[in-house]
Design a protein around this nucleic acid. Sequence first.
DNA 1: ACGTTAGGTCTACGTTGTACACTTGTCAAC
DNA 2: GTTGACAAGTGTACAACGTAGACCTAACGT
Lengths: 227, 227
Amino acid sequence: MATISKETARRLDPEKLATSALALADTEGLEAVTIRRLAQQHEVTPMALYRHFSDKDDLLAAIGDRMLADIALPEPTDERWDVQLRAILTAFVAALRPHPKVAQLALFRILVTEPGLALAERTMELLIEAGFSVDDAAEVGRQSICSLITLVNMEPGSAEVTDPIGREDALRAKRAALAALPPRRYPLITAAADVLVCPTSTDAYYELGIDLAVAGICGILTDRQQH
Amino acid sequence: MATISKETARRLDPEKLATSALALADTEGLEAVTIRRLAQQHEVTPMALYRHFSDKDDLLAAIGDRMLADIALPEPTDERWDVQLRAILTAFVAALRPHPKVAQLALFRILVTEPGLALAERTMELLIEAGFSVDDAAEVGRQSICSLITLVNMEPGSAEVTDPIGREDALRAKRAALAALPPRRYPLITAAADVLVCPTSTDAYYELGIDLAVAGICGILTDRQQH
DNA sequence: ACGTTAGGTCTACGTTGTACACTTGTCAAC
DNA sequence: GTTGACAAGTGTACAACGTAGACCTAACGT
């Protein structure tokens, strides 16, 4: 039974390590992801992890890959290019949304991991169909992807503490700080304090972000076609 | 001479500390900004810094404030709102551009420091003039600002090593990795490898980013006015 | 039966942020 | 003047981090 003996021999598995590292980051933040901590969770010596990851950056890359693997890329249809692009970007955001605290780790892995490459290729296809040159499609695509990662990464509240009490306190403190501003000098900021601290709906937040990205692409397309 | 004695007494000055911390970050990256390192530069014990910053986050916040202080906000004119908005966002990006490695530190300080608040208030003014509700203006404004910070932070090459030889090597390696992809599977990515690794012109990169942001805002404005 | 090797352990080093107790130079008030 | 308070810098110390390097050991191919 070669498989079983192998299983007993190798107690650690890079996939599972990346998965539990991701879970740890989701609940306690990226700074909680520590070689020692992860080793402890798997009842293993810290140095054992280095048999599977060359260094910590390698582990973080694995977390990024783990998230990108969850992209459910929609099949090409015969809808208009912008409709399809929106669907693709929505799928991308959907894959990252569960992990706002570490979404930025996905960025460096897009042009490395297969799901990321597939996403990039499909995006460029649609942009070229829209009328962009290859180079413009590359630049526009990168900036859009980048914006969306930031959208997830900056999801309001993701930076805050994990425990709901502390988070509520932090939000209250922020709101108070904004409310304490002189309303005569900053009428709009004080008026919008609540929304600035935490948007009304997370879904609306994401929809707005994707809308902005797609609308931006459509906008510069018509602009650049004129010249 | 009370001033002189005071000057000799307080060898450290939070402003100067923040400035040299920013310079250090610009040349060697954020991870080079260390309490010990900064203390050494000022010929002082590490713990001395804690008389002026409550902890390291406080120091990083000061770096963010230092950058925001460089915003040269244009005076209101009677041009169209989108022209003025573009000017404001350009001024914002211009202030951050010299510091791509630490631009993200500015984000959390916008609604705290005066120059950031002024930027936010002016931005909201213009968005409301454009036709957004107060709440929408807040959300759109935040996302746009956020996008632009990321634009600077992800300026191609900013993450790379500081010394030009190592940077050139890294770029070459990246290009090679993309060129090694199967062109049949990823025709567009391989075709655009050069641009994906490093855009042709940094100025064009920033102009595209700002164009995308403004065009996105204009786009969703017409969208939402219809419903 | 036996070397090879993959996977985990143990120990140790240098670096980080920072808590705490201390000295010292300066000024206000008596 | 003397004194007491106080702000600023020092010295020592600790826990946590990433990781280098030598070791052990159990399974595998031959």
